[in-house]
Amino acid sequence: MKPILQVQDVRKQYANHTALDGVSLEVPEGSIFGLLGPNGAGKTSLIRIITQITGPDGGQVLFRGEPLNPSHIGQIGYLPEERGLYKKMKVGEQLLYLAQLKGLSKADATTKIKRWLDRFDIKTWADKNVEDLSKGMQQKVQFVATVLHDPALLILDEPFSGFDPINANLLKDEILAMRDQGTSIIFSTHRMESVEEMCDHIALINRSQKVLDGRVRDVRNAYRSQTYQVEGTGKLLLIHPDFEVLEQKERENGHFYARIRIVHGTPNDLLRYLIGAGQVEVQAFREQIPSINEIFIRRVRETHPDYVPETDSMPA
């Protein structure tokens, strides 16, 4: 697949810290690309360069092969992490204004606004002032403002923050539908577990550097650790040089749970050993696939042995 966006060795330096230190990545066309990393890693700085809010100090960004320039603005939609609308403007006027700023004609914008308001079932809000809407309603309006001009590339910074579960699901369906129609989506978040299932590709960013990227499946395969979760009954006594017990728990009624790493051999060897010499009855046996979060931490520890996961939060 041809990349819609190529970021090449982008650097961004602020007065007293480096926000981006030679970051390169490619966003394939028509996929959902997860831009993951803790707060303060440099995600927002990168997004601001892609949206042309700021420029890079070094490196370049290509949009469909051309260096990024103002003519691309109309093809990019951006939902910032910090949401905001003009409070004293009517919803309809506001959407019209923002769409026109993106280069839509008035007539075109008007029909599109009508279509989106219908789709989200919020037609009746058009004449309301934004300040009279609830926070969740404002989020919907803001999302509409982001996608109104049918962008080829949609950048969503922490899109689910502030949505209740019902609306979050609605939004998720909407995003997947847009992907299926060919929109490329960059999905930025520090809550990695929330997007694993939606993303086709990911890039992990930590401390202004990319630490990892690729297809989600490939990344996870690369970080498989030959660890299996086993549940069953009986007394598990495992003494074998090929297998290492990472964790073992006894439960009531002679049940057990264990995580076992295969140092040498195949899963079948382990299973055969458990059934045979292990003398236990196996009820569940599955490979433990690492979560993106675990991969991230492991990857970062490899490069920075002193790494402590940041819980919160410098401003991005």
Binding site: G84, L85, L98
Partner: peptide, 17 residues
């Protein structure tokens, strides 16, 4: 200040300089 504290500015300046 209104645009800045409302954070709408980020949306707008992704469209205009």
């Amino acid at each position: 200040m209104e645009e800045k504290t409302n954070r709408i500015v980020e949306v707008v300046i992704s469209s205009v300089k």
